[in-house]
Design a protein around this nucleic acid. Structure first.
Lengths: 228, 228
DNA sequence: GCCCACCTTACGTTTACCTTACTTCTGCAT
DNA sequence: ATGCAGAAGTAAGGTAAACGTAAGGTGGGC
């Protein structure tokens, strides 16, 4: 999932350039031309970072910065045509994450933005990839085509067990044992139902699974990337 | 506890100046004149950040940077006398946290360092936001729609535990353990009651929580905003 | 073609959690 | 000590999501 960046600048030309740069690099962008609009877009779009020009028609970037930070500790990178020491110090002094003076190299903008995002959102969510599905173990959810689905307790432990042995067959007995840790009889059918429900959450076509495969007579197995 | 900063520069004069600036600002400093020494001081001193000159007598700062990062994801700010685009892009491209060109204003160095440290070591402001609720950890108070509500001891530690893991599920066992420190069982119901009371303080509609969510069979989880 | 392993669906059951009211505990001021 | 107030814990009835069951269907392997 791409980061969403809000660009606030009153120069159309520069705004489009920045937008182009960021889009090329795989970010999602949103834009505002003035303070009022910026606040509105900020609330609506909930961006992951803000690129903020100091000069704005209906106020200055510094006070807008204050309003943004009051609502949330969002990363903000100032852009400014003025390379006055005073401005730079003011921006950084307020707590901005960076202060970039125009003109700047597209590459440098990207790198500085990346640097900030890396620090702010560093903690890689403990996630696993399964084709086009992403499993977030911390949240206990799986994302596919942008939609999040919560895993139930049984589905969670079941999927985890399969994931830990991904590429290898896990017997039905072994699965039953991890799900009910006890007499491993009588729950085989229930297991199938859970498998089915899991497939509905991680597979595109649950009836023709591509990832959670059944091995007739033995058990189930999760495919491993680049392996069959 | 003051941050420890390692300065790596072969110019005595500049090194002393930087040292002076940082010490004045309340940082602890350590210094090295060349790569070999830098690595030694890095291992020994375990600094919280490194200020790194690009030009060094026994190698260049870029490769030293690689060695440092290999051992640990320490924040690094490059200092350079050369304001060549190429160098800046290279430094930032490697993953540096900032790139400052000499001569620089002492104040700017401090601000940029502070900015990086703030993100890396998460100096949590003494208050947290949760939707329209603001939590003041210092006072142990929650504000919503202008009304202040005091948190009780149990509610406070419970909320803090959830906050520290915000975005991720915290198991009921883990919560019980922090509230009653011990592998005690039998407090699950009490925990629920505390959860309920917390919700009444932070949620608009406690019966349909938007922030403190329950994950059936697994635990509870506090939503995290502006982040995926 | 037949069997058996597995799939699939609908539906009934259970259990984890919610909610409320009440009781007990704890610390503090009198 | 005594009583009080707020905090913490207990209990019991309610609810819906999660789970389990069963029964008919499907298809691969012999």
């Amino acid at each position: 999932m791409a980061y969403r960046i809000l660009i606030v600048d009153d120069e159309h030309e520069l705004q489009n350039m920045v937008k182009e740069i960021l889009t090329q690099a795989g970010y999602e962008t949103d834009a505002a031309l003035a303070c009022a609009q910026a606040l509105e877009r900020f609330q609506a779009g909930n961006p992951d970072a803000v690129l903020l020009d100091v000069n704005l028609p209906d106020g200055d970037g510094f006070s807008l910065f204050g309003q943004l930070r009051e609502s949330r500790d969002v990363p903000v990178l100032f852009l400014s045509a003025r390379d006055e020491d005073e401005d730079r110090l003011r921006g950084l002094g307020l707590g901005a994450d960076d202060y970039i003076t125009k003109p700047f190299l597209p590459q440098e903008l990207l790198l500085r933005l990346r640097s900030v995002l890396r620090r702010v959102y560093r903690e890689e969510p403990d996630a696993a990839r399964l084709g086009d599905a992403k499993i977030d173990w911390g949240k206990g959810i799986v994302r596919r085509n942008g939609v999040e689905t919560a895993l139930t307790a049984k589905e969670f432990t079941l999927l985890k067990k399969l994931w830990e042995a991904r590429g290898n067959i896990v017997t039905i007995d072994a699965l039953c044992e991890t799900l009910w840790d006890g007499p491993l009889v009588g729950y085989e059918n229930t297991l199938m139902v859970h498998i089915r429900r899991l497939r509905e959450k991680i597979e595109e076509d649950p009836s023709h699974p591509k990832y959670l495969l059944t091995v007739r007579g033995l058990g189930y197995r999760l495919v491993r990337e680049g392996m069959r």
